[in-house]
Write a protein that binds this DNA or RNA. Structure first.
Lengths: 240, 240
DNA sequence: CGTGTCGTTGAGGCCTGTCAACCTACGTGG
DNA sequence: CCACGTAGGTTGACAGGCCTCAACGACACG
């Protein structure tokens, strides 16, 4: 029997986008084909690049194809706060991840490829009622996810914040078909976790060591794996 | 000369909604009239009520008409994190403020009136292309605002977090026409600020006293006023 | 083998939380 | 008119979680 992923992956590099959109509504075969066949310009970015303005001449919608990036806000003193991670299939300059005016930028956390799709094409696609509903649900969901993060930052101590971040990140990766199981290695460095939780890398290191001793996390050194999703969720300390 | 507000206020109780929508696109006279004339059921809520499910039989869109409320997430131990404030004109159960499944609720912070508009009517309104764009911009903006809050919580210390919150709150109140100037008294108690910034009410009290000594805030006791918006913004510590 | 990246560990200090008491303003009822 | 209760704000003493600074280790790569 051919696994489900195979049929999706046959759609090509934009299949992560199809998977993502499919989470928010039933896509018609026509929509799936249209997206799968979209013409786009591939653009590659290197690690540690910060992008404040994506080229929009001609007007383009950027979709991440592979890699890892994030949106972040900077403090006056240069520190960085990651406000959301960007995964393959995520929009990078519109809809749920439209950077805030001049204060938010895109940081590339691992070698990343983006697909620049002419905005006109995409706007046309969004004209269909079902696709419009899907996009609206997408953005609404992003708002809700951001508010959950606000909850975690406000309510949790260091241990709780880290637990929440890892739980949500792994959950998202699985749902989006980017890893097979939540116990697979996560592509996060301790610095990323620090910048996303508002903690220092030193303290993140200590907390991760503690979570490993508690058998909530596994892996050594640079390999970060979740051992106990249920435990992680309860440590996050939110009343779900 | 008749001030602008007068013409808007003539639209009746739903004028805050018209003002809000107008921030995200040019509304046609027809749209304004339609919204101003919407039939709705008024529902009043008392302070300290927590609403986990708004009645949706029949399906309704809830719009706040007057008062003050917030969305909040609870910790396992019962503490509350305010994830966003709800002001007159805000949707309360759809679009930019759709509560997250079972984990988020609406807390009434001051006597509040909501307008329950039949969902069908509203869905019909959103069918027009321009209004659809307005709604999409609304939700996108809410996502961006939430991410800005994440930035403040992650980057700022107590002083910075409070400064950010008050700056954004006052700014929003002014833009929405709910107060005349950012130096007008704000309808926030110190407890609200504590729950929105993830601090304790005791520490919020000390920080507010400090900001008053620094002439950034004014007012005594229960009266909270901003004296210096520019100073507040720079204290927030975000690279704008 | 030098260099850079990322993780790890220790010592010390500050920011913020916790606990507790008290104060003012205001409304209610005898 | 006063006793009382409640809501919200204010202040002090103390503890602890997290930050800062610093050094070192493991590993990849040219």
């Amino acid at each position: 029997m051919i696994p489900f992923e195979t049929t999706v992956l046959k759609r090509g590099p934009l299949s992560p986008l199809i998977v993502k959109l499919g989470l928010y509504g039933q896509l018609s075969d026509h929509d799936v084909d249209t997206i799968g066949d979209l013409r786009y310009t591939a653009i590659d970015y290197q690690r540690n690049q910060r992008i404040t303005t994506l080229s929009v001449i001609p007007p383009c919608v950027y979709v991440m194809v592979s890699g890892l990036a994030c949106l972040s806000v900077l403090a006056s003193d240069g520190r960085r706060q990651i406000t959301r991670f960007l995964l393959p299939g995520d929009f990078c300059n519109v809809f749920d991840a439209e950077p805030i005016g001049s204060i938010e930028g895109i940081d590339i956390l691992a070698p990343t490829r983006m697909a620049a799709v002419p905005a006109g094409v995409f706007h046309q696609l969004g004209a269909s009622p079902t696709m419009n509903d899907v996009l609206m649900a997408l953005v609404t969901n992003a708002t809700a996810a951001a508010r959950k993060t606000i909850g975690s930052l406000g309510l949790g101590n260091a241990r709780g914040r880290i637990a929440f971040l890892l739980y949500e990140f792994a959950q998202t990766m699985v749902v989006r078909g980017l890893i097979g199981a939540p116990t697979d290695p996560l592509p996060l460095r301790q610095d990323h976790i620090a910048d996303a939780t508002g903690l220092t890398n030193v303290h993140v290191n200590r907390m991760i060591a503690q979570l490993r001793r508690d058998r909530i996390l596994s892996g050594n050194g640079k390999v970060l794996e979740i051992a106990d999703m249920t435990g992680l969720r309860s440590i996050a300390g939110i009343k779900w």
